[in-house]
């Protein structure tokens, strides 16, 4: 009985270790997870080193030969979609990832309007001045893992938008009154002119 009690924490520890290994295999390799802000500030420290970068795959996967470019954003919106939370936290920030096309194929959804892109983890070498790409600031990734698949965002206009649309339409209608008045006045003047000249 006592031996069994000792076994449970051991099993739990093993399970936790396996999960940890699965979702963060890079950390087990002793690699550091870095953000784009850190890479911009401390580029000398990380230049030429293998790093782990996590974020939302956005825009396009641009396949060139056996490789592909994909932009990965690690900003606030990569975890909290603006159209869901409404939180404004500045512009986007991320980095271009150069990776084998076969790895890029794992991306099923890209972050664009109306969709949250796959949240991915890439492991690769960071270049503050990439010789292969004419001085690019990029990561040459050897692997990509989708940590969380992207999803579609359902957007509906805010509650106040429909009344605002009706009000603006009404305003547009009212704004035509001076034009209609002017037309009527011009017609009247033309008629009276014709009448006076005996044409009517």
């Amino acid at each position: 009985m006592k031996r069994k009690t000792c076994l449970y924490p051991l099993l739990a520890a093993c399970l936790f270790f396996c999960l940890f290994l699965d979702c963060s295999s890079a950390l087990a390799d002793g690699l550091e997870v870095v953000g784009s802000g850190t890479l911009l500030r401390e580029w000398e420290k990380y230049d030429g080193r293998e790093v782990v970068f996590r974020g939302e795959a956005v825009g396009d996967v641009m396949v060139r030969g056996g490789y592909a470019w994909v932009a990965v954003n690690d900003d606030h919106y990569s975890l909290n979609a603006l159209h869901e939370t409404g939180e404004l936290r500045g512009g986007n920030s991320g980095i271009g990832i150069w990776l084998p096309a076969s790895e890029a194929e794992k991306i099923t959804r890209l972050g664009r309007h109306g969709s949250v892109g796959d949240y991915v983890e890439v492991v690769g070498v960071f270049h503050a001045d990439c010789r292969e790409h004419g001085g690019d600031f990029d990561i040459h990734a050897r692997s990509l893992t989708v940590l969380e698949p992207g999803r579609e965002l359902h957007q509906a206009p805010g509650a106040g938008k429909w009344p605002a649309a009706l009000a603006s339409l009404a305003f547009l209608g009212i704004s035509l009154i001076p034009l209609l008045k002017r037309r009527a006045q011009e017609k009247r003047s033309a008629r009276s002119l014709l009448r006076r000249s005996g044409w009517d």
């Binding site: 956005v58 825009g59 932009a71 954003n73 900003d75 919106y77 979609a81 603006l82 159209h83 404004l88 936290r89 500045g90 512009g91 986007n92 972050g111 664009r112 309007h113 109306g114």
Partner: peptide, 12 residues
């Protein structure tokens, strides 16, 4: 110069 937030998810 821009002050846009989350341009990468802006509508077309």
């Amino acid at each position: 110069l821009t002050l846009v937030h989350d341009l990468d998810h802006m509508a077309y």
